[in-house]
Design a binder for these strands. Structure first.
Lengths: 342, 342
DNA sequence: ATCGTAACCGAAAGCGCTTGCGAAAGCGCT
DNA sequence: AGCGCTTTCGCAAGCGCTTTCGGTTACGAT
């Protein structure tokens, strides 16, 4: 029972099993050229001596690097949490390990993370979360992605267009339109919007959707006040304060994601407004607790776990000649936070 | 502008900079033996040719593997989401990358994940989440951890004892006692418990805490019904159904984590029970939305982000002669879901 | 019995990098 | 100018693994 200082290597396994290094390698990787019984024997010996293959050596020698990268804005955000869950389910059932990093919505950080992932020679990267409106940063990212794919890397994005790679795309525009139409149908005419970070394309898309419905109803989009939050619960509360103080006449506010809607609910209730009797609130995404807050949130549901899973599938599949797009369904979930305009 | 098929290697940088491979390496790693100006020159050339170091080769050659592993039960669970956020903040500010995997509370999966992480030669592992009650699986895990640390690996656990490694430990026992005392002080005598998976030590500890308060109040612990859920919202709702149907006389239910408490709220409200007027509900952890559900949840707050951050600090710090323990504070947060017994 | 073929195995060449070690070059000193 | 010293750099040896290529062995067939 002597604790050996360094872990056993494949050559140790080979010796203990009485075969050559090469044979041991073949036995462990399951490649052809070794009889099944011999392979089983080698594997038995390997696990007996506590052999753990060195994945660095393996990757260096040409074997694939069984690691995929996942970049999200914020792991603590339920939206990304669900996506991560979907991705992890898939990676783990396939024997991959996931390198996860968060950017906190900083485009420079995103670039750095992609570089770091490349340094670790991941073969595939899932980029989850909106792209940036600012052309120059987005261009840098696109260049990095292109150089990665040109070198044989695979990337898939979730909720991000304009990048020539496989994509899983929720229909933010129509989702936004559906949501706004719901409010309009309820008779609301004074609706305020809690936007997310102004430099995200997702925000742009959802706003465009809202506008579609507003225009279709013959209303003037410019009369709709929009304030920008940071997509967090706290940011949503603060943005609501600004919005409602400046526009006390509002009968409804739609937030561009659920955490902000929850923040809105919290602020409104704390300031004595009744929801939805005096003012309706709607969100976007349908995060797991959306139905449990008070009042239960009306929102647009996105299949987040499935999106994560699909993105991983795409990224592991051999590349197509043209980027694939998977459009994901969305669904208006009407709960208690919206009601007819007073 | 020809797209070279394979990425530039260090030797390419060296040639382009007119130095030897060794010098280029030293310049890139910032080790001594190279004048500052030469190092700067080499680095400039490197970034110009788009050199990205191969971390596998680096790790193989003896350099540290700048990757840490994080194992959680479920990334989608807000508790672990917050922990992951804390860990990632820290890793990224230090230039590490995090390999995250989830076990879905399967001890065998946990063992497999640790092995996989070892294969990838991570130097440090943060093991978040409860240990298992079952002695044999826990023994296997302990053996694996021991063999890892014996080989120079570092591991820190969050909310898990009995493993001879650095630990960040919430005081589940006293937290549970505080929570139960709160209910008892409100006059509740018929309290039901929504336990988590029965094979988790965290569940045992929190139950032990509840019992402490029950005993101290001179009541009989055996009169307290306990049903076990799976720590999810849905599991909490289902467990509540069983609990309340079997014990309609209950005036309070305490859930051993917040998602289950939220599920309890949901089921109770749907079955027409008024909370807290007819029945109080309390949770544990204080996840971000705990204050926004209806009614706002009374719970025991744990500093989850900080716990993640601390665990990472511990695991990156040189090992102490004896395992370090960081006890984290907890705090009873009284909100609207608990009220005096009817 | 002998030969052809297939199945299996072993030696050795790297994968891209870090790092002792010794060589070269630059410095102040006598 | 010549000495020893320090600083700076290059050579070459691996890190642990996969894989090509050629060599053995064991068959069934002739």
């Amino acid at each position: 029972m002597t604790d050996r200082p360094s872990p056993p290597r494949l050559i140790d396994v080979a010796r203990a099993a009485g075969v050559s290094l090469a044979t041991a390698s073949r036995a462990m990787t399951g490649s052809t050229g070794v009889s099944a019984s011999l392979a089983a024997h080698v594997q038995a010996v390997a696990s007996q001596v506590g052999y753990v293959p060195n994945s660095h050596a393996r990757a260096l020698a040409g074997g694939q690097a069984s690691m995929v990268g996942l970049i999200v804005h914020d792991v603590g955000d339920p939206y990304f949490g669900e996506i991560a869950r979907g991705v992890l389910r898939e990676t783990e059932s396939r024997g991959y390990l996931a390198l996860i990093s968060q950017t906190e919505r900083d485009p420079r950080a995103e670039l750095a993370r992609i570089r770091a992932l490349r340094a670790h020679r991941v073969t595939s990267i899932v980029l989850a979360g909106s792209g940036y409106v600012d052309a120059s940063t987005e261009t840098d990212i696109a260049a990095e992605v292109r150089s990665f794919t040109a070198a044989g890397g695979r990337v898939a994005v979730i909720g991000r267009h304009h990048l020539p790679v496989d994509a899983v795309l929720p229909d933010n525009v129509n989702g936004g339109a559906t949501l706004m139409r719901h409010l309009l149908d309820l008779g609301h005419r004074r609706v305020g919007v809690l936007g997310g970070p102004a430099n995200l394309t997702t925000v742009e898309d959802r706003l465009a959707g809202l506008r579609l419905a507003v225009d279709a109803a013959g209303l003037d989009w410019r009369s709709i006040p929009v304030v920008h939050g940071d997509f967090t619960r706290e940011g949503g509360a603060a943005a609501t304060a600004r919005l409602v103080r400046a526009h006390p006449e509002l009968t409804a506010v739609v937030a561009l994601n659920d955490p902000m809607a929850v923040g809105a609910l919290s602020w409104l209730l704390n300031s004595g407004r009744r929801v939805p009797e005096e003012i309706s609130v709607a969100g976007f995404d349908d995060i797991p607790v959306a139905g449990d807050v008070y009042p239960a949130l009306t929102t647009v549901r996105l299949p987040m776990v499935g999106m994560g899973r699909q993105a991983l599938e795409l990224v592991l599949k051999p590349p197509a000649s043209r980027p694939r797009r998977r459009r994901t369904p969305h669904e208006l979930v009407i709960r208690a936070s919206t009601a007819p305009a007073p």
